[in-house]
Amino acid sequence: MTNHKDRNGDYAVATKRDEQARQILARKIAAHAIAEGDMLTAIPGLRLYRRSQPTPCASAAYEPSLVVFVQGKKQVNVGKTTYVCDESTFLLTSVDLPVVSQVVEATEEVPLLGLILKLEMPAVREILSQQEFHVREDSADARGMAIGVTSIELLDACARLVDLIDTPQDIPFLGSLIQREIVFRLLRSPQGKHLRAIATLGEQSHRTSKAVEWLRINYAKPLRIDELAAMARMGVSTLHHQFRSLTAMSPLQYQKHVRLHVARERMLNHGLDAASAAFEVGYESASQFNREYSRFFGQPPMRDVKARRQTGSATSQA
C-alpha cells in the first residue's frame, strides 16, 4: 500500500515537472514575442503575446480559441462572470464573445506571456468523429468560455508548436499535426465538454451557437427573439436559458455588448463621431447610445476614445 510520504513525493515530482515544462514554454514564447502586444506567426492560427505592465480594462472580441498563459495574471469578464488567468491556466473560448479584460500582474522582468491558438470547429468535429475517441456523457450546460489547469502534455505540445517558428519548412506538415494533438488534449480535459457541446451537430449548445453567430454578424439589425429561437429550432424560453448558459448574457445583452464594442472600434480606428458610430451599429437614439456606452466603458464615447488614443491602448485577446 502506498503511504502518504510516497504520494506526497509523487505530487512534488509532478509539480516540478509541470513547472519545468511551463518555464520551457515561457522561454520559447519570450524569445519570439519581443514587442508589446500580439505577434503573428507563420503558423496558421497561432499568435504569441507579451505585456510588460498592468493595463486598464479593455474591450475585446474573443473568437473560438485556446489561450495558454505561462507568466503573469489576467482577468477576463464575460457578462457578470469573471475568469482569473495565471501562469498555471488556459482559457478556452468556444463561441464568439464580447469581453472586458485587464492585465493585473506583469512587469519588465516577469511579463505576461502566452500563446493564442484559433480553434477551427471542422477540425474539432473531425477528431470527435474518430471511433477511438471516447467521451463521457455530461448533462451540464455548456459554457462559451472555460478555464482549466494546463497539463504537462498540453504544455509540451504547445512548446513543440512554437518550435516550428524556427523551422518554417516543417510548418505545412507538422503544424497541423501538433494543432490536432492540442485539440485532442483539450477535448480530453475536464473543460473539453464545453468544446464538444458546441462542435457536436444537433446538440442544443451547437444550435444556440448558431444564434450567437447570427447576432454577432447581424448586430445592427433589430432583435426579434422569436425569429432567433426559430433559427435555433427551440422555444423562446429554452433559447433564453441556453443563450445565457453559453454566453453569460441574454440575447439582448449580447447584442448590446457587440454593438458597443464595434462602435468603439470604429471611433478609434475609423474616426467616426459618437452619433455616426451609434447609427452604424443599430442605435436609433444617440442619447441612448451615450448613456449605455458611459455605463459600460465608464465614460462618454469621445472622452473614452481620446483617452485610449493618448495611452495607445489596444485590444487583444490574450
Rank of each mutant, 00 (worst) to 15 (best):
M39F: 10
K16N: 13
S250N: 05
V103S: 06
Q75S: 01
V76I: 10
I127G: 14
A232E: 09
S94D: 10
G79R: 00
V68L: 12
A197F: 02
E132I: 11
M121V: 03
S205A: 15
Q102Y: 04
Y11E: 07
K73Y: 02
L92P: 14
Y83I: 13
I152Y: 00
S294V: 08
S151V: 12
A229N: 04
A140M: 06
G72S: 05
I178S: 05
A123R: 12
S285D: 06
L46S: 14
F69V: 04
L260Y: 03
T93F: 05
N77T: 08
Q255Y: 10
P168D: 08
A21P: 04
A220G: 02
Y293W: 00
T315H: 13
Q102L: 12
A220E: 13
V68S: 10
E284W: 05
F90C: 07
A106Q: 05
V103N: 11
T89K: 10
E19Q: 14
P54C: 08
L128M: 15
S139N: 11
D166A: 09
R143C: 07
T41L: 04
P64G: 03
R22T: 06
V162W: 08
R50E: 01
A248W: 13
A159S: 04
A157T: 09
A142V: 07
L187F: 12
L268E: 01
L92Q: 07
G72N: 05
M231Y: 06
S209P: 13
A12P: 07
Q71N: 12
R160F: 09
Q191G: 04
R188H: 13
V70D: 01
A26S: 11
R160N: 10
E105W: 02
A229D: 09
C158L: 06
E87M: 12
D273G: 11
Q299H: 04
I24S: 04
A197P: 00
V70T: 11
F184C: 05
G312Y: 00
R51A: 13
P44R: 05
I24A: 08
E108D: 11
T93I: 13
Y219H: 08
A220H: 15
P44A: 01
R308S: 14
E109V: 13
Q130G: 09
G72R: 03
D18V: 03
K118W: 09
A123Y: 00
A123P: 00
F69Q: 03
I152A: 09
T311S: 15
D96P: 06
S245Q: 15
T82L: 12
R216N: 05
L177D: 13
K80Y: 05
E19H: 15
E109P: 02
S101I: 05
L177V: 13
T167R: 02
V95A: 04
E280F: 13
T41I: 06
A157L: 10
V183L: 14
S189I: 09
A318Y: 10
L25I: 15
T15W: 06
P172W: 00
P44N: 07
A318T: 12
L48F: 12
S176A: 11
P56Y: 03
T82R: 14
E19K: 14
D10R: 06
S316D: 08
S189L: 03
V281P: 15
I34M: 03
T200R: 01
A142I: 09
L272V: 04
P98Y: 01
A140T: 03
T247H: 00
A229F: 02
P56R: 03
A199C: 00
S129V: 00
